[in-house]
Design a protein around this nucleic acid. Structure first.
Lengths: 144, 144, 144, 144
DNA sequence: TTTT
DNA sequence: TTTT
């Protein structure tokens, strides 16, 4: 059993890449999950410049990865169901480093907005009007 | 281990009552949790008049119960963490009936709005402006 | 989001049936999930003949259903990950009744033993010696 | 929402220490949580010397910490409910390092045995006979 | 209709 | 630094 549920906001836009041989899509981003603090405790932490959220690295595979990359931006609220995955790698200085991520099986978009309005397209934002009807949606359902 | 996480919308306004002797507050409501259906499957279900959500009875105790009663209304989106509780009672016809609820330990308000604008008060809705800053909030944190 | 994790013991042997047209296997059983009670509270409840567990109906589909039927018996400890499902049916007296089950996506066997040693077969129990190696196992992994 | 459920085995005996001023007990250990692999995939991973488990650092506070230290040993199976906590510290080389742990709210002992039978004591293991009755137990319930 |  |  390895089961995680998080609700939080993206700390930056998702990154998307494709695995060389398989062509599998992977998206990664970091989630700020508010710690469950009383109003007072929260202020105290902020005053001391201590974090009031936990930061969790998220990994998403496949079509869901592409949906995240296409629709999510920094600051957006999502719900995630997945599992904890540990890993390790060798740092440039030769020491071993350990990593912990959450591999998401489902990503629910809990907020919508004009995402990805930037850049070389002169559109006024992606058109996903038909998605607006059903709000908490699993991103696997996004129909393209 | 008995652990449940749900995200869904209230199917009606919460009810609030107080336990006679202890004075403990209890709030109850029902949550519509969207089934994770593909767009096509969802349309098919709707066409057949079959439910596209699961309906779960929620029970909340204490201060959190009062916060739910004060701030939540039908349709509002919440995240719930709790446990499944089974029970039974005798129906009027003498047969035994079985019940299943989720007892919530935390209720996160995932949407805010002008709740409880009704009735004998001539206010334009409760004033909870200071709560608006931190969106996914555990209702235990609501400071009154 | 609709996520449930339970650890508990089967209150009876699993039932297995096959859906008429599709041929899909379904297994159903009930799980006794101990309430998280202090020693004292537990004794008090037992003295008053009140249940010290919550009872949850479990539904399992496909190969996992067959594994449950083949390997689990009353009393066995399992871990379950799944989602809450609500339903309704018409009782013989014409009134509507509501049901709540947990549809399991994974069933981990947390105890092993000589299952199905009963009755009209003169076997010494099913042979699943090769399964004994890896203890907390998701039943999807059972290789037949 | 920050909710984690794990079932796994301790990779070493728990460590216990007390926070200098508050006197709060903290126990830490690492959990090996089997990846959900098919028999074939598992063998393949083992052949390649790749891990077939995820390793998660667990932190437990208070009485529960002491119960873990007193009753758990390397290899024991437990169920854990808690939340992900991120942190950071400065390494000796001045670089910032990031950590991810699970802070457990409940630890269920899913196996029992003669724990702590070691060493300078000539006991035959701790006496916790009265605990043997109720198997999946939250360690908060251990009555001393 | 309930398990250890 | 990893368990059965």
């Amino acid at each position: 059993m390895n089961n995680v549920v998080l609700i939080g906001r993206l700390t930056r836009d998702p990154e998307l890449r494709y695995i060389p041989n398989s062509g599998q899509a992977v998206s990664t981003f970091s989630l700020a999950v508010d710690k469950n603090l009383s109003k007072d405790k929260k202020q105290e932490m902020e005053a001391r410049n201590q974090p009031t959220a936990d930061f969790v690295n998220i990994v998403v595979w496949g079509k869901s990865a592409e949906n995240c990359a296409n629709y999510l931006v920094k600051g957006r609220l999502v719900g995630i169901q997945g599992r904890i995955q540990s890993g390790s790698y060798e740092a440039k200085d030769g020491t071993k480093r350990y990593t912990t991520d959450v591999v998401a099986s489902t990503v629910e978009f809990l907020e919508w907005g004009d995402s990805k309005p930037q850049g070389d397209s002169n559109s006024k934002g992606s058109d996903f009007s038909d998605l607006q009807d059903f709000h908490p949606i699993d991103n696997d359902d996004i129909p393209f």
